[in-house]
């Protein structure tokens, strides 16, 4: 779907709406009045340092802690007063691999199939989806970290959630496992599931997310599409490699540099040009002062 159309659709149908959300744990303020909305089917990235408030936001939105003030709605229901109606519509891939390790992978899913009133065939379907059919009858404690993570994802999909929260879903995984998880997330989004993703991986956020929010000290310091953020906060420069093997940095907003580039082009001196569009990490450093 073209990004413009997608953004228009998102604006029309927010499935998560957060307004002035504050959460304090005693004297510690975890969230300092954040506001944002996430549209139906969007992959929304929530980025920030440890302790920035990412997990607290998920805890509030999934009903596991109550906000100190402000409001939050998921699928149109208030997270404080209407959580029982939200619960069947959401699910979460936890940061920790919180599985029943003495049970088999299949039994782990069956428990949640029963809790969400899903047929047991759904467990088999999901084990197949995440490539664990062969290991279904093995106890989870014999699984590798990547297999456990895939089982966590399967568990989170058991109720066909309208909103799927993922808290660092690829942390500690090898590149191949991480890619598998990302593919599943992308597929879920294509099928209309709204994805709320927290991650430390800027590449992952850039690759997956329709929009990202940068969180620092309980506040959202930037929120936009990855491309807009990179354009807004990245450097408008390019690196030109000339025939004599010289690398020259040129500024795209500078008229002198523009003339120099045109001359090199005319003279056939240019071998390659690489734009120095900023990465999300550059943006984050620019906003939060230090890398993730």
């Amino acid at each position: 779907m073209p990004q413009k159309d997608r953004q228009e659709e998102m604006a029309a149908a927010p499935v998560i709406e957060v307004e002035g959300l504050v959460k304090r744990y005693g004297a510690v303020q975890a969230l300092a009045g954040i506001s944002f909305s996430v549209a139906e089917g969007e992959i929304f990235g929530f980025l920030g340092h440890n302790g920035a408030g990412k997990t607290t936001t998920i805890r509030v939105l999934t009903g596991r802690t109550k906000p100190t003030s402000g409001s939050a709605k998921v699928a149109g229901h208030d997270v404080v007063s209407d959580m029982p109606r939200i619960k069947p519509l959401i699910n979460l891939v936890f940061e920790d691999q919180n599985l029943y390790e003495r049970l088999t992978g299949y039994d782990n899913l069956i428990l949640f199939a029963d809790l969400y009133r899903q047929p047991h065939s759904r467990a088999e379907e999901l084990l197949s989806l995440v490539g664990l059919s062969d290991a279904a009858k093995r106890r989870v404690k014999t699984y590798s970290s990547g297999m456990k993570q895939r089982l966590l994802v399967a568990r989170a999909l058991i109720n066909r959630p309208r909103v799927l929260f993922l808290d660092e879903p690829t942390r500690g995984l090898d590149p191949a496992s991480a890619r598998e998880i990302r593919n599943i997330i992308r597929d879920m989004s294509r099928e209309g599931t709204t994805v709320f993703l927290t991650t430390h991986s800027m590449e992952e956020a850039d690759e997956l997310c329709d929009r990202v929010a940068f969180l620092a000290k309980g506040r959202i310091v930037a929120l936009d599409t990855p491309r807009e953020l990179k354009l807004r906060y990245g450097q408008r420069t390019a690196t030109v490699l000339l025939r004599d093997r010289r690398e020259v940095q040129i500024c795209l907003d500078d008229a002198t540099d523009a003339r120099r580039l045109a001359e090199w082009m005319e003279a056939g001196e240019v071998l390659t040009i690489h734009s120095n569009e900023g990465t999300l990490e550059d943006v984050f450093i620019a906003l939060a002062g230090q890398p993730l």
Partner: peptide, 12 residues
């Protein structure tokens, strides 16, 4: 301890 309670509390 194993945080499986967190997963249960999502629906129960």
């Amino acid at each position: 301890e194993k945080k499986t309670l967190d997963a249960l509390i999502l629906i129960v």
